[in-house]
């Protein structure tokens, strides 16, 4: 118990320093623009298929599952707006972030972990290349920027999934469905949801990099780094989400 607590405090301290270094390095030139773009491509574009499938299924399933209840209340016509509201506010951000924690945080953890173990990070350092700047800053920036975009994309696909789900039993034209959705979606529904996804993205990148960068030597630690990155990133998404709900509740 004693060592457990000590580890938690030690880890918290180290993560804080690691984060502090991010903000210090990000403002110092030179900027690794090429690597940043490459990471955006690897993180954003390559996650599209996964996010499309999960987004579509979320919308579809949510609609089909909610329909009986809505019919009981005689509120079937509310189905499109209810589904899209819960998608945009909660389900798409959290599910997409979790999927990305699984795919991206583990990927970064494993990649940087193996670079650490095979001395590639040391090799950069002796070549007078700042590995933190080149590897960590670019990846954290890329996830912070890409996760919100992926989530917005998942919103769209999710609503489309809802449309297909609605038409399994009912019938409504695509145009009618989407105008129904847009009519009931306020801009204000988007803002808190979008803001929190930036934090999700930041933490996915941060945790993946932290775990990878601090992998101990030996190939086994690469697997450990990847695994811990997924667990910690997923957990942090739930905690952040809870905080976000409390804060949104205060202000909106």
């Amino acid at each position: 118990m004693h060592t457990y607590l000590k580890n938690i405090f030690e880890d918290t301290g180290k993560v804080t320093l690691f984060t502090g270094r991010f903000f210090k390095e990000i403002i110092k030139p030179p900027f690794q623009i090429n690597e940043f773009i490459r990471q955006c491509y690897a993180i954003g574009y390559k996650s599209l298929p996964l996010v499309s499938i999960t987004g579509f299924i979320m919308g579809l399933v949510l609609t089909i599952q909610s329909r009986p209840t809505m019919i009981q209340f005689g509120a079937e016509s509310w189905l499109p707006s209810m589904v899209s509201l819960s998608l945009v506010r909660e389900i798409a951000p959290v599910i997409t972030a979790l999927i990305c924690a699984g795919k991206i945080a583990s990927g970064i953890g494993a990649e940087l972990g193996s670079m650490k173990v095979t001395e590639q990070i040391d090799a950069m350092e002796v070549s007078a290349i700042n590995p933190y700047k080149y590897l960590v800053v670019t990846r954290i920036l890329a996830t912070t920027l890409m996760i919100p975009i992926l989530v917005l994309y998942a919103d769209l696909i999710g609503v489309f999934g809802g449309y297909i789900g609605f038409n399994v039993r009912g019938s409504m034209s695509m145009f009618a469905y989407f105008s129904e959705v847009i009519e009931h979606l306020d801009f204000i529904d988007f803002i808190p949801a979008v803001i929190k996804t930036f934090f999700f993205g930041f933490f996915i990148g941060l945790i993946g990099c932290y775990k990878g960068f601090n992998a101990s030597s030996g190939t086994a630690s690469v697997g450990i780094a990847a695994n811990e990155a997924v667990v910690a990133a997923s957990l942090s998404i739930f905690i952040l989400d809870m905080l976000a709900v409390q804060i949104t509740d205060l202000f909106f």
């Binding site: 990649e111 670079m115 095979t118 001395e119 590639q120 090799a123 002796v126 070549s127 007078a128 290349i129």
Partner: peptide, 29 residues
């Protein structure tokens, strides 16, 4: 460091880059 060459025991080549990029990356920086 930029005046010292260091050859690592296991090579420490950058896995994500081709041989050409490995050399170019080092040289460019």
């Amino acid at each position: 460091r930029s005046r010292i060459g260091f050859m690592f025991q296991n090579g420490a080549l950058y896995d994500s880059m081709s041989v050409r990029q490995n050399l170019a990356f080092t040289l460019k920086h």
